[in-house]
Design a binder for these strands. Structure first.
Lengths: 166, 166
DNA sequence: TGTTAATAGGTAGTATACTACGTAATTTAT
DNA sequence: ATAAATTACGTAGTATACTACCTATTAACA
């Protein structure tokens, strides 16, 4: 084979910058998700919130933010929109007067079930180019980077959550 | 070894959804970049725009957007901010009265050189957990997904650009 | 007990990343 | 040469993802 350059990590071209590729992948995923779910008018983050509330638990905003690895304020916005659509309720906590809880409604529950197959289509379409082994390798490496850069983002997921879901 | 489940692609847990992992990775990358470059008050996308203008070419907004794989309107915002800081100039095109071009200033040129090492630190920190082979595999798989989902996002990069930089 | 810490939530502001729509200029087709 | 389609740019609006700062409530400790 022709031995090309040793190829150390140089980052000169945009296509040699992991951050650049990750940004593009993120754009593409969001675009695919929105396209597949266009009939439901739902976003990836909104669906993630509904996913953690699907089993009818009643959680506060911070817990939800930690479980989906999102910013506290962003989650507050998302919850506001989902409540406006009647997919969530927001009961006040009786034990902690600061906390404003969130719980899925029956409508929200049915909504998740309706959207689920489309969400899966979006995930599948993004990754169809990969065979089984490539897929597993990619997922493994991405999980590794997320766990090792655990405290980089302002919305780090808690160890408990990692163990529960990972 | 203990043979766990066959592990088909099921997407039930958030950590089994590629889109979810990509969103988290994107968050982490942005956080690392902003942290490393905090003294310069610059974002990944702003730096990407400066990168394509670094060799003193004078380009229009659409061309810039295509080269960095970003939305046209987003690029317009970014350019506006960079111009406000004196890092870019915006000469009008003489051949096409619709086009408003962008060109890097001397200040912008020096700025890129000052920020470059910090950008590289951010890229490196994101990927330190990976050894050389893992790094190359990850980059290869991400590039593959981007190229194969070429027309998914509204800001697809043109084949010419792909050949030039890929 | 009383002071301090930490926590839950809110508001306001910025940047990215879109959609939808409109205008002016250019290119293509008839 | 004129009409139609395309292109470049702009504005306005929405959603995500932050920072910074604020209040109220709870927990910790001296």
């Amino acid at each position: 084979m022709n031995e090309t350059k040793p190829k150390r990590r140089d980052f000169t071209s945009l296509w040699d910058r992991p951050g650049f590729l990750i940004r593009r992948l993120h754009q593409i995923h969001v675009a695919l998700f929105l396209e597949e779910c266009s009939e439901f008018n739902i976003t990836p983050l909104q669906f993630a919130v509904l996913t953690v509330l699907y089993d009818r638990e009643t959680l506060d905003q911070v817990t939800i933010a930690n479980q989906i690895g999102a910013d506290r304020n962003t989650v507050a916005d998302v919850i506001r929109r989902l409540e406006r659509r009647g997919l969530l309720e927001r009961p006040a906590s009786v034990v902690d007067k600061r906390a404003k809880l969130a719980r899925i409604t029956d409508e929200g529950h049915a909504f998740v079930e309706a959207v689920q197959p489309k969400m899966i289509d979006a995930q599948r379409q993004l990754t169809v180019p990969l065979d089984r082994e490539e897929y597993e390798v990619l997922m493994k490496l991405m999980r590794k980077l997320i766990l090792e850069n655990y405290d980089a983002s302002r919305a780090p997921m808690r160890p408990g959550v990692l163990q529960a879901d990972g």
